[in-house]
Design a protein around this nucleic acid. Structure first.
Lengths: 191, 191, 191, 191
DNA sequence: GCGTAAGCGAGACGGTACGTCTGGTCTTCCT
DNA sequence: AGGAAGACCAGACGTACCGTCTCGCTTACGC
């Protein structure tokens, strides 16, 4: 790797990206156990101090990558929402969580939140909360437009739609193929 | 604590229980971060070697406590299963996972499974698998008896019923009160 | 290096010696700058924690080696002291300080004492003080026996005899060959 | 401190002096450990970069102050040298080394020379060497004038006269009051 | 009834990673 | 040129646990 150009007294964007990518790569390649600050620093070609200067802990690094990657690879549909766009979102969600490296980051952060209340808090504030807000908007918009008639309030609806997907991903079981269809049919259905 | 009576060349059951309880207590009091073998040994008044002699790692300790506690506090209903017994099971499951210390152990092991494939494997083989078997039996028995007519195959049904509960517990959100009722009504319902 | 035999729950004498020798070697080979706890640990094949368990700091390691090595390689003469035995001691002192690795340790500790009052204190209490006591005994014994008639009180005599040797060693100048003879002749002389 | 007048594109003499004094003060107040380039810069009201621009390292700063201060406060006697002027020089030397802040700098540089060969080299070339030259001239002039008849060659004489003083200062022992007199009497004496 | 075998508390050991700190270099901006 | 500020790499610091090992003891079993 060529020595990166020094940025003087401004934050070095290259270093920031190198760290995010190194964290991502290490997580995928060596699991959370291999994700040490020491290893990230070495892989990114960065001093440990540079990491600690900008991130309180390694989960904050993961959070940053997750936020950026989710926006890119699992966008909330922008079309006027219908049962169909929601179905498509669920399918994308399932793919994200099982196949995308960023999905692995999501599962890791859910996991780490169980071990560490501070992680749980930040994870909520910076990821789960904002994300849920957008998803809720999607549900209520579809409801208001008469596209769907959910059997449960919006948040409960989302828990029921996403919960099984996440649960399957966490327990490493395949996500049943008919799951999205059935849930949408029975829980958002006309009657 | 009085020095426990030495058991000679037989495994010391008291030591075993002390370790399990120490692990449980430490998890509740100081979280997974405070759950170190060193701390368990000190709290249980046991040598580290005694722990390593009987458990490959600290998650195996948790697994042992979880198995014993789940059998005691979240038994599979033995009555001939109906929509009602299943509903009651879901409610008990929700309470277990949000209020019982053993529920915290369950969430912790789900979490740790994300970080460690070996943990994931053992967790499946010794807990999730056997448990799922019994739950599946419950579902198929109810189906065969004509008590319920699930919209999905048995495993998918269980994922849909339990997934949202676990997901809410993991993300620390309240479990919607109408959730069990609605899911049972719409997904196991007569039509 | 073959793995050293573990000593169980007793302090491992081999490890202790390995640390002392590693420190000595590193000082000679790479100077005080290369003498880090990290390097000592690596060279001795010992964990850092083992070093911190037994020595408050790296200068205490040096102090231990110095004490043991001085006793071995620069013993206080045991014969009834005369002008001749004192002369021989001075010569041995000069060799020790210029040629022996342990002499380098001595110079290093004198140096480090300038930088660090705590070092100065320990160095005095554990090395300079006891050593001076024995040397003073040597001088007074010789005086009492009528073998020498010093022009100065015992401690001043020792400062005058040893000071130039140490000073030359510190400033890296050769120790004048006639120095010991002349000093003994003029300052301990008969008249 | 009033902002110093900027000197444009010439080296700022005020800044230079501020650095020297700051280094001196810090050494006396906080010891060598507290003498960091960072601290010097802050105390002198100077940018770190300015220091690194002009001095390779902090010992070079000390060397500069030592040279200037020694010339001022421990001048080589200019009168035709006699036993008396030499005695007076020794007394001044003893005071310098035990009481003068610059004496502390001298001891510090002797110490640092043990840790760092590069320091030792510069220290010799810029301080010890030139100084010794002048002192040697003093001795030989006195000898040639018949004022003294040293028992040892000039350099050895100086080692014997100054060595004990430096040694006492380094080991923090009092310098015996009769030392200078006795040494001069016995070693530079008429017989 | 005594030797053997195993379990036990204790704690030292070689390691890994932690999060903190300092040192010296570099860059930008302003005076 | 020089001040101020601060990011950066490098790597040592002392700490916490890891999992392994040996010690010295105690008990239970079987010859």
């Amino acid at each position: 790797m060529p020595p990166r150009t020094r940025s003087g007294n401004r934050r070095d964007e290259t270093a920031r990206l190198d760290v995010l990518h190194a964290a991502d790569d290490l997580l995928v390649e060596h699991g959370f156990g291999g994700l040490t600050v020491e290893a990230i620093a070495k892989r990114a070609g960065v001093a440990k101090q540079t990491i600690y200067r900008w991130w309180p802990s390694k989960v904050d690094i993961l959070l940053d990558t997750l936020i950026e990657d989710t926006e890119k690879r699992l966008p909330i549909p922008t079309d006027p929402p219908t049962a169909d766009t929601i179905r498509e979102y669920l399918r994308a969600y399932a793919r994200f969580v099982t196949e995308d490296p960023a999905g692995k980051v999501l599962l890791t952060l859910i996991a780490e939140s169980q071990h560490n209340p501070a992680t749980a808090k930040t994870f909520h504030e910076r990821y789960l909360g904002p994300r849920r807000e957008q998803e809720r908007a999607m549900i209520t918009a579809a409801t208001d437009a008469g596209e769907i008639t959910p059997k449960l309030p919006p948040d409960a609806t989302l828990d029921v739609l996403l919960g099984p997907i996440v649960y399957c991903a966490l327990t490493n079981s395949p996500i049943p193929r008919t799951l999205a269809n059935t849930l949408i049919g029975e829980l958002l259905g006309p009657r």
